[in-house]
Write a protein that binds this DNA or RNA. Structure first.
Lengths: 208, 208
DNA sequence: CAGAGAATAGAACGATCGTACTTTTCTGTC
DNA sequence: GACAGAAAAGTACGATCGTTCTATTCTCTG
């Protein structure tokens, strides 16, 4: 018995999804590169070759894993924040969901992209490109949200949106990194408070 | 012909240092775990077994590499900042040197500890412990510097030093991470400006 | 400058890696 | 319910991994 959603997925697609979910989890813990086909096959209770056939190469698996993680990130952070009204509220929602995404351990090893970006920083190729693109689009989205808040007069305009986004992201990222290292959930409060304070300090002066 | 420093080092010690310097460089680029003995032997133009004998195990090599990197970090960031007078000046010096340490690419792949901490986050053991300890001591040192600035009346006391250190470190770390990803040196300016502004906003109100 | 001990090299090990090929089992359609 | 094609398993490959053991070369002291 199985819940049928909008589209009936073929067997192959279902196993593929299951593999990728597990792969994304393991990648945040062990790394995307050191995660071997054999390890993943064992974790999904499949044969090495059976799993391998889904992706054609290890790089194919890595790319699919990055895409899978990106979808999850969008669903967990971007999509819910879109529910908030444009402007400061949405900026805050984005940051808050970003912190929550680390806090709730959507991936068991913390933010997938924080982990893998460090791993692939100096490994040119399509995998690195896709990770970079994803992070860039996150930062750009955050930047645009800040811009909208500025245009709405909710945030001062004497600092570029790009740099404000940089600061907000920095605080969220730091909580992710430090939690993974020290396992002290207080860092999430620190990040949220610092973000709120920073946004507060950028408010007022409707005319800019 | 060789420059003789205070203490004449034995041949073994000199090779060991050379190996560790190269190992720390490669570790920030390829990772500390994926950096294989064979790769490192090739990079240092030694035999696998000749190199191996210096450390007894791969873990021994990793621990020695972390210690080596820690010494370099202290020499590049902590030591020069100690030249600045206690208080706000030293806080700024610490942050500025931290950013400069990423900017000057002391390690070719960016901050050694940022890279390796993500890698070992979920790999319990002595290597992870030592990385964690090093980062903790950096954050504690920064926190103490903030405390001194607060006690000197140069920074407000209505926010715990710990959290201020968290924020400052976050900004420096973000510039390191983003530079490695996007290769845009402007992020170092963003970080420095954000840090300066944050410290500025925490100034004044001598009585707290 | 000889000789002891440190430093390095060489060769080999079992294990695991990514990948290719073949064979078996399963799924969904007529 | 048979049958075509997808999905999965089985097996084998060369390469590289960390490590061990032995042999050679170098260094420094007496």
């Amino acid at each position: 018995m199985e819940i049928q959603t909008t589209v009936r997925k073929t067997k192959g697609e279902r196993t593929r999804d299951a593999i990728l979910t597990r792969a994304a989890e393991l990648a945040t813990q062990e790394g995307l590169e050191p995660l071997s086909i054999g390890r993943l096959a064992e974790a999904t209770e499949m044969s090495k070759s059976g799993l391998f056939a889904h992706f054609g190469s290890k790089q194919g698996l890595q790319l699919a894993t990055v895409d899978h993680a990106a979808q999850l990130f969008v669903a967990e952070v971007i999509a819910p924040a879109r529910a908030a009204p444009r402007g400061l509220a949405r900026v805050w929602a984005l940051c808050d969901h970003m912190v929550a995404y680390s806090e709730r351990q959507v991936f068991p090893g913390g933010c997938f992209f924080a982990a893998t970006s460090f791993e692939f920083n100096n490994k040119p190729g399509p995998v690195r490109d896709r990770i970079e693109e994803m992070i860039r689009s996150w930062l750009t989205y955050l930047e645009h949200a800040v811009e909208q808040a500025q245009e709405a007069g909710e945030l001062r305009r004497d600092r570029p949106a790009r740099e404000i986004a940089f600061e907000l992201d920095a605080l969220a990222q730091a909580s992710n990194a430090q939690y993974q290292l020290f396992r002290d959930p207080a860092v999430f409060d620190h990040a949220r408070r610092a973000i709120r304070e920073r946004l507060e300090s950028l408010r007022g002066l409707k005319a800019a």
